[in-house]
Design a protein around this nucleic acid. Sequence first.
DNA 1: GATGAATGAGGGTTCATTCAT
DNA 2: TATGAATGAACCCTCATTCAT
Lengths: 210, 210, 210, 210
Amino acid sequence: MPKVGMEEIRRRQLIDATKASIHEDGFANTTIARISRRAGLSSGIVAHYFNDKAGLLEATLRSIAEDLRIETVRRLRDATTPEERLLAVIDANFAPSQFVPEVVSVWLSYWALVPQTPALRRVHAINEKRMISNFRHALKPHLPEDKVKAVATGLAALIEGLWLRCALSTAGVTPEEAAGIARDYATGQFKKHAAANQPPARQDKIKSAI
Amino acid sequence: MPKVGMEEIRRRQLIDATKASIHEDGFANTTIARISRRAGLSSGIVAHYFNDKAGLLEATLRSIAEDLRIETVRRLRDATTPEERLLAVIDANFAPSQFVPEVVSVWLSYWALVPQTPALRRVHAINEKRMISNFRHALKPHLPEDKVKAVATGLAALIEGLWLRCALSTAGVTPEEAAGIARDYATGQFKKHAAANQPPARQDKIKSAI
Amino acid sequence: MPKVGMEEIRRRQLIDATKASIHEDGFANTTIARISRRAGLSSGIVAHYFNDKAGLLEATLRSIAEDLRIETVRRLRDATTPEERLLAVIDANFAPSQFVPEVVSVWLSYWALVPQTPALRRVHAINEKRMISNFRHALKPHLPEDKVKAVATGLAALIEGLWLRCALSTAGVTPEEAAGIARDYATGQFKKHAAANQPPARQDKIKSAI
Amino acid sequence: MPKVGMEEIRRRQLIDATKASIHEDGFANTTIARISRRAGLSSGIVAHYFNDKAGLLEATLRSIAEDLRIETVRRLRDATTPEERLLAVIDANFAPSQFVPEVVSVWLSYWALVPQTPALRRVHAINEKRMISNFRHALKPHLPEDKVKAVATGLAALIEGLWLRCALSTAGVTPEEAAGIARDYATGQFKKHAAANQPPARQDKIKSAI
DNA sequence: GATGAATGAGGGTTCATTCAT
DNA sequence: TATGAATGAACCCTCATTCAT
């Protein structure tokens, strides 16, 4: 008599153990044996629930990507103006649940795999598209058409660069500092454009929104 | 009597082959067998010149770090004002020799190893310190003391984030776009501060420098 | 649910195959591949049960040392007089189970490793201590204090020297011949002393015991 | 213009370095690289003078066997009676030049190779034959025909067993103790037989010879 | 006579995978 | 549903050997 709901529990256990192992042991030392030991399960269980080591790794990436998505969606629900939307997306990326070394270590490891792994490439492309899309929508009303892409790209790059430092710097960056830097970049871009092309009132509004 | 000068040639061959393999095969698939085959040499040669696979990998990282350092130093020689120095450092990071997928892939792979590899950790710490130090010196004259650190951090993050996209994006960012985004961030920070705290003349000077 | 009791079976299989390989292939040619092939198992099995090749080799030495210990203990149970004890120990060393080329080859190989292998050094020291201790106890009642050590050493040396010949000589020594030589040495030592220091009656008793 | 006499010098250097390496590094760690480094020469030199690693190893064994032979021959020149001859052979085996750990380590390592190495097997057989032959000749006049072989075998075994202890025992046996034990064995065998089959006068003679 | 750069076979080891239980 | 024993391919590394100089 198979227990119901076991599948979800086991999958969660294994994904969590994978994250922990990538962070603490390093990706190269993340083996099925270590993962299953951390999860308190046998090595065979991975094949049972994920078919493959690759399957577990992919599921783990999907998991953190999903966490970020949820964090973003939740904050976007409360945002009404484009500015608020922009800041909501930024803040989601530096939410405590995302800007912790354990999670960032996973992102970092996966980035290194993306170029050569078709499955991860697809997942990554989707994630990227979503983030950029969010930024472009929020930026569109305030920037000239030809600037939108560059700023959106810059913002995404800045966020990932700050994540990187979170994982790599011994004297790390705090989530608050990181969020501050990213917000600063966004507002700087807004102001610059507003000063040249828009009435001052608009600029104030932006400021207050931030 | 053995041939002289072979050592440097062989080391260069192997380092180049390592870069190529990391980029094309992926770091996880970069084996001594593949590297030496690419170099047109035997597998034993790696032990001969680098002791270890780890030794070759470390030498490869040192190599690209050194290339960046040289690129930076060369540009700094021609820079006279702080602004020019800042832009020189930015441009060095997007020089054609650095902003190519092959080199960026190596950076990417190494980032993923840094947290668990003491030797790479040291190399990374030195590189980081140098980059940040360059930025802080260039930013100091134009920004209030308490802003310098954040902007320097943001600039470094932005650069590495743009490198990341170079490695990961199928529709990649061009070096020119990337450099433009980074310069834009720097000038934005300058302007913002100049507008508030400095005479307009100063601002013009900045603009012209860029 | 894994099969129970497999561990002991596999360990025995591998230890036996190791002995056979050392004897037939020579220690230098005793590889994991050969051992496992002899055992009819895969090469990975060694790591599974012994961690290491070194672990298997150490276990093999412990095995033959243990066999000798058991053989000795069993014979000592039936020995009542010191003379009987002495002969029991001697006979144990030439028991059919010990004085066969296969087992002696293992002893021989290990002797060559002892000086440079701390783990084996410890095992060897224990074995030596036990053998010498057995001899000293048995010799004590019949020899003057200052002779005991030399005779015990001589007896141990003689036994190991006879083992050596068992392994090296094409026209080998038979267990019976070897045991006869060792017994002869022991009784010679007894007699010599008895003739000088003890009443004839005692001497007869020794003779009869032997 | 090739230097004359170089060959003998080089061969000696390499053989000495081989002995040192076997003793200090252990046989398994005795590589051509280590040997030639110890000798202050290049690795290619071994092929030049010994063709092979095997050739060098065989030459090294021949070298210590030859040293023993010379030591024996020298002592036999001064021996006139059979007893003296016997003791001369015994003493040669415990001469300072032979009973040192370095030389004994080499013997030990070679014993482990003899069974599987035809070339060494031949060398060993010759050595053995010579030693046993020496003993038999010396023992013949004093022992009944049927005892000679056993005692000669015992004596050879005892000597090699004592060598073994020299190499393996932490609390080693001194050459003097070792020689004493071996002499004791020989005289014991003589006495035993003399007591039974010969006039007392003969026995005294033996004693004085020892 | 002598070097040491270069080779490549073979070693021990690791580990994802399979499968009987 | 879950185990872990067993496999064997692929890895890194060592090292005897070769050979141009």
